[in-house]
């Protein structure tokens, strides 16, 4: 039966069901239990935002609090994955990847290829990303393009609770390393989720709204803002097709190109800064393969090329919002050469 739960609950349920199904699944990270070695309660936190709350009681030693030592425990997750476990490591904020990037970029990503196809590294790195919580420059970034750039890594960013559960289960069952991005601003999003286990294949974008006038290609929290803009624009007679990339690696090129070919007018919305980004990548893809279908220049709505600011008045401008997206769509829709 499907019932309505939050994205946070969907992630917890995916971990719970996979740990119940497969004893080789372990979870490790900073405070994923919370309270280890302390005199108060165990499972005091269940993750900094409570995503893993309750799993310690069920799975005990398979829930591992780590010291704040990302390169050791992300590397240990990779090594354990190459030794028969299916670890889910939590890198609390994706901004922290700077201190453990080698383990992801040179080790996990490369084993399968570098060892001639004779190694599997079924590790999942769950990590929070995104701005909007006044968490400032080192806790608010959206660095998925950096990971997407690396051959051998799979990059997933669920937008709905349904997708979060199915994509995380897929990530855990997948034999390649997966970076699973969770937007802080989406944890409380509600949606219908089946109680049963299910998995969603990677590399299939989701057309979350159909329309024939303008394509909005987006990912993560920006999908919600794109939908908000599309709703406003529908009232003005502009029908937008909104595509949620769902995974940036592998990337569903076909759905992006089909949508661009259908509308001929494209806006790409990305929360990250504009250079070497998912937005530029998508626009290059369309320019390469759907050039003849284009009726207007591709428009990019992104963050500026600055760190994420703290003060509300600054951060609110930093993040693309529905109004900016709508303005970009209007300009693309009205473009005539």
């Amino acid at each position: 039966m499907a019932r309505t739960i939050t994205l946070l609950q969907a992630i917890n349920e995916a971990l719970d069901q996979e740990m119940a199904r497969d004893s080789s699944v372990i979870v490790m990270g900073e405070d994923v239990v919370g309270g280890s070695g302390a005199e108060g309660e165990m499972d005091a936190w269940g993750g900094p935002l409570g995503v893993t709350k309750g799993l310690y009681g069920k799975y005990g030693d398979r829930m591992l609090d780590t010291p704040i030592t990302e390169s050791a425990f992300i590397g240990a997750a990779v090594g354990a994955a190459a030794s028969g476990l299916r670890p889910v490591a939590e890198l609390m904020f994706s901004d922290f990847v700077g201190v453990c990037f080698d383990q992801i970029y040179n080790q996990a990503a490369k084993f399968r290829y570098m060892f001639g196809g004779r190694a599997e590294t079924p590790v999942v790195v769950r990590t929070m990303y995104g701005a909007g919580l006044r968490a400032a420059a080192q806790h608010s970034q959206s660095p998925y393009s950096i990971f997407t750039h690396v051959p051998g890594l799979k990059c997933v960013m669920p937008v709905t609770p349904y997708d979060a559960k199915g994509l995380l289960i897929q990530a855990i069952r997948d034999n390649d390393p997966v970076i699973f991005f969770e937007h802080k601003g989406l944890y409380e999003t509600e949606g219908e989720v089946p109680e049963q286990s299910y998995s969603i294949p990677f590399g299939e974008a989701n057309v979350v709204r159909e329309g024939n006038d303008v394509s909005i290609i987006s990912l993560g929290l920006m999908v919600h803002r794109s939908l908000e803009a599309a709703e406003t624009l529908a009232g003005e007679g502009i029908q937008c097709e909104v595509v949620d990339l769902r995974t940036t690696s592998p990337l569903d090129e076909d759905t992006v190109l089909e949508s661009a070919e259908n509308t001929g007018r494209v806006v790409v919305v990305d929360e990250a800064p504009p250079r070497c980004s998912i937005a530029t990548d998508i626009s290059a893809l369309i320019a390469q393969h759907a050039f003849d279908a284009l009726e207007a220049p591709i428009s990019l709505v992104t963050a500026p090329h600055t760190p994420v600011p703290f003060a509300g008045v600054l951060e609110d401008q930093y993040m693309p919002d529905a109004a900016r997206i709508a303005a970009a769509v209007r300009s693309v829709a009205g473009y005539a050469p």
């Binding site: 080789s24 030693d61 050791a72 090594g79 354990a80 030794s83 080698d102």
Partner: peptide, 21 residues
């Protein structure tokens, strides 16, 4: 390993797998 110091975290993982299993 082409990365100096790449191995020790991996071995923590291998040892953890042995311990968990």
């Amino acid at each position: 390993n082409g990365i100096v110091g790449g191995g020790p975290p991996l071995i923590c993982g291998a040892a953890l797998a042995a311990k968990v299993q």
